[in-house]
Amino acid sequence: MVATLKELAAKEDKLSPGHRLCAGCGASVVARMILNASTLPVVVASATGCMEVSTTIFPYTSWRSSFIHNAFENSGATMSGVEAAYRALKRKGKMKDEFNFVAFGGDGGTFDIGLQSLSGAFERGHRMLYVCYDNEAYMNTGIQRSGATPMGAWTTTSEVGKKQAGKIQHRKDLTGIMAAHGGYVAQASPSNWRDLVKKAEKAFAFDGPSFINVLAPCPRGWRFPSEQTIEFARLAVETCYWPLFEVEGGKYKINVKPKTKKPVTEWLKPQGRFKHLFKDVNADKLDELQKFVDDQWDRLLALESACRLD
């Protein structure tokens, strides 16, 4: 049974205000929703990134829980160590309390730099949840391209000019990579809060490793007004750019199927980082992006119906 907003609001937030994330940041909305879905106290680790640097500026910490930061590439490894130590203490009878273990990483710390430690944590089967808040570039250092940046997006390391119109390559399918590991894997968006809370609850209840990839729109890096953060998350779902699905026991299930699939340009056009794509010379890029989204959606539908057959 998914907690209602009324039930969630009755509890104190596990992420306190006073953090130095930008106004309208999508990442803190994601972190709040995930942590508030936990009925047990949490133990949190975070990879270096926006969330880590702005929530833990000494002597301030926004985490109303244990928190550990180690380095950029190893929040998966750090959290698996914490979880293994906890299990050992429990086995020896030195600890009785129950906890949920959560690691946060941005797309830089997950898609690129921390992929090996996350992969290892999954393979070893630690009972932990890894959340990737995907803002589609290295926002903390000032908007550099990552493995999650969509094709055509402007960043400071995928410039726009005569020779190049933003990032050349398509983003990688990290949720698919994690699904190949097993465990509980899901993709979610803060706009669909009920779906996100449900997935977090499922992940906490799952006896093994779980991974949730959540879109976290970034007003600074995507170039849009701060009040539209949730609207951009919603448009990403409605255009099927960011499908909401989960993989449990190797079976794909799509959670939200938009009645009418909006063209991806509705999501792209209001964002400053895609402004150049709407010049005539780059018309082919828009077609290519639409094809990328269509192919990804068709593949998901096929995967879902293939899972139903047996």
């Binding site: 306190s16 205000p17 006073g18 953090h19 130095r20 106004a23 929530t55 833990t56 500026i57 000494f58 002597p59 301030y60 910490t61 926004s62 985490w63 109303r64 829980s65 244990s66 928190f67």
Partner: peptide
């Protein structure tokens, strides 16, 4: 640089932004 208590950021004012 251990912070011995959680949630101390609530003391910090960000309303001035």
């Amino acid at each position: 640089a251990v912070i011995p208590e959680g949630g101390t950021a609530a003391d910090y004012e960000t309303g001035g932004w």
